[in-house]
């Protein structure tokens, strides 16, 4: 499940009012989610959740599901 919080961070960074973001969604399928935006999305997630990603982790993420799992891991499942 992709949390509302994560979804809203992504949509806000991309200036989208709505988009169906699922676990298997790839960045390339979401309008405006290019390599540039990718980093601002990561930076916003770090800010919002108070976590830090390793460079390797950012590189290893394949889809939004992976991203959600990584956030869950770093926040011990307790979204702040």
């Amino acid at each position: 499940m992709i949390s509302e919080k994560l979804k809203s961070i992504i949509l806000k960074e991309l200036n989208l009012s709505d988009f169906d973001i699922k676990e298997e969604t790839l960045a390339s399928e979401v309008p405006g989610w290019d390599s540039l935006k990718n980093f601002t999305i990561f930076l916003s997630i770090e800010e919002e959740y108070g976590i830090k990603f390793l460079t390797e982790e950012i590189l290893s993420i394949k889809n939004v599901g992976d991203l959600q799992k990584l956030i869950d891991l770093k926040t011990n499942g307790n979204e702040k």
Binding site: L36, F39, L43, L54, T55
Partner: peptide
């Protein structure tokens, strides 16, 4: 600066 960006994106200025 955020040095992770340097290796991901050849750019190092943070938000």
């Amino acid at each position: 600066f955020d040095y992770r960006l340097l290796y991901l994106a050849k750019f190092k200025w943070n938000k």
